[in-house]
């Protein structure tokens, strides 16, 4: 039983949370108490408890992004104690549990900081810049017709695995948040290399690389300094090798594509 386990003693925490009414308003860190928090709660469940108490007091609850709460949708964000998705490696905020913190801790919670991700409210940011980059070329055009046979196109297992690794990107934006340049290179590289490795994606590879990078620059993300913070903070472990693949895809496309 939870009550008998000393490791499950309820915790009391101090939160410093970024509050900002809307995109135009000035924001500031506000201090809140998070009391009687079970170590088994996820970070988001802890915020739910805090919000419930705020609502009872008539205070506007803290706005934060979340959806699936099982680490696959990429909606949750939060810069926790100076780290994207908190101190754990390879997890989203919804997979971060309160047992990773100590009773009495002060936790600083901020939104993703990037001009390309404007703040909606409090901790919730607008990541539609990623959608626009994706729409610029992160797809494979297939004309209608009969359904092709499964395995009709031979793809080596090693290539399929690498493409799949790149495809696990959930588009959460932790790479941008952690990057000192607010660069979206890890995201864009995952999307470009995922298709560039596969025969179906090779057809449009050049135009894809050109258009997605152009859109990335239009959105105002910074450039890549190869510091590696993005890959270190990525909840699904997208590798820096993808950025090298994007670089050579882009340079190759610029030198040889038909788009003048």
């Amino acid at each position: 039983m939870a009550g008998n386990n000393p490791n499950l003693k309820p915790m009391n925490l101090t939160l410093k949370v970024w509050r900002q009414k809307n995109n135009k308003a000035a924001g500031a860190l506000e201090t809140y108490k998070a009391e009687n928090i079970s170590p088994e709660m996820s970070f988001l469940e802890m915020l739910d408890v805090v919000n419930e108490n705020l609502a009872h007091k008539g205070v506007d609850p803290i706005a934060f992004d979340h959806d699936c709460r099982e680490g696959i949708c990429g909606m949750c964000s939060l810069y926790i104690n100076g780290r994207a998705h908190g101190p754990e490696q390879g997890t989203t905020t919804c997979q971060l549990h309160m047992r990773k913190f100590n009773d009495g801790d002060t936790i600083v919670i901020e939104p993703w900081r990037a001009n390309a991700f404007p703040i909606h409210k409090d901790l919730s940011v607008d990541r539609s810049a990623f959608d626009r980059i994706q729409q610029a070329g992160g797809y494979v055009s297939v004309n209608t017709g009969g359904v092709p046979d499964a395995n009709a196109i031979p793809i080596p297992k090693s290539i399929a695995d690498k493409a799949f690794d790149a495809a696990t990107c959930i588009g959460c934006g932790a790479c941008v948040a952690a990057c000192k340049n607010a660069s979206a290179m890890l995201f864009v590289s995952a999307k470009v290399s995922q298709f560039a490795m596969l025969p179906q994606g090779k057809v449009e590879a050049k135009t894809r690389a050109e258009n997605m990078v152009a859109q990335m620059d239009i959105e105002g993300f910074g450039a890549c300094s190869n510091i590696g913070a993005c890959a270190a903070e990525c909840p699904v472990g997208i590798s820096l090798e993808n950025i090298a693949i994007l670089n050579r895809e882009y340079l190759g496309a610029k030198l040889t594509s038909q788009n003048v």
Binding site: K16, W18, L29, Y79, N81, G82, R83, P87, V108, E110, R113, A114, N115, A116, A178, K180, N181, A182, S183, G220, F221, G222, A223, S225, N226, I227, G228, A229, A232, E233
Partner: peptide, 26 residues
């Protein structure tokens, strides 16, 4: 360009946990 990509910085940031000092200070 990189400075302009983030005009509001973090109140608390721990870049030392994910990258080298030299790479951030080229």
């Amino acid at each position: 360009r990189n400075k302009a990509a983030r005009s509001v910085g973090y109140a608390m940031n721990r870049p030392q946990d994910n990258s080298n000092w030299s790479s951030r200070n080229m």
